[in-house]
Amino acid sequence: MSVRLYDIAHARAGDKGNLITIAVIPYDPDRYPRLCSVLTAQRVADHLAERVAGDVVRHRLDNLPALIFVCPRAADDTVTTSLFLDSHGKSLGSALLELELEWDAEPEGAADAAPNGGPNER
């Protein structure tokens, strides 16, 4: 079974220097642990490969809960020097929400221990 990220989460993109940030926030906090295990930094990097250059770092904010993905941009793709129509990258949150995720049956309760996201976790 799979779900489209748009159907279970909302997102906000921002930019700072040569980085684009995209926060992903599940509508239902109970889905956060599963989201942590399937929405890895690598998954995001692969999906946004046309715009993201290099390793994506994922930050977990279990207290909200929310995930923040920090995505590096190409050296000549800064807000002022970008040739992209959306020079800021503000529309990238919508691009990320198009992602289809493998989603097994919902876990019972919140027993799913949120696993670590790998080497790019902070």
Partner: peptide, 10 residues
Amino acid sequence: VEQLTYEVTD
């Protein structure tokens, strides 16, 4: 929560 996370790199 959306604004809290906006442009936050760490």
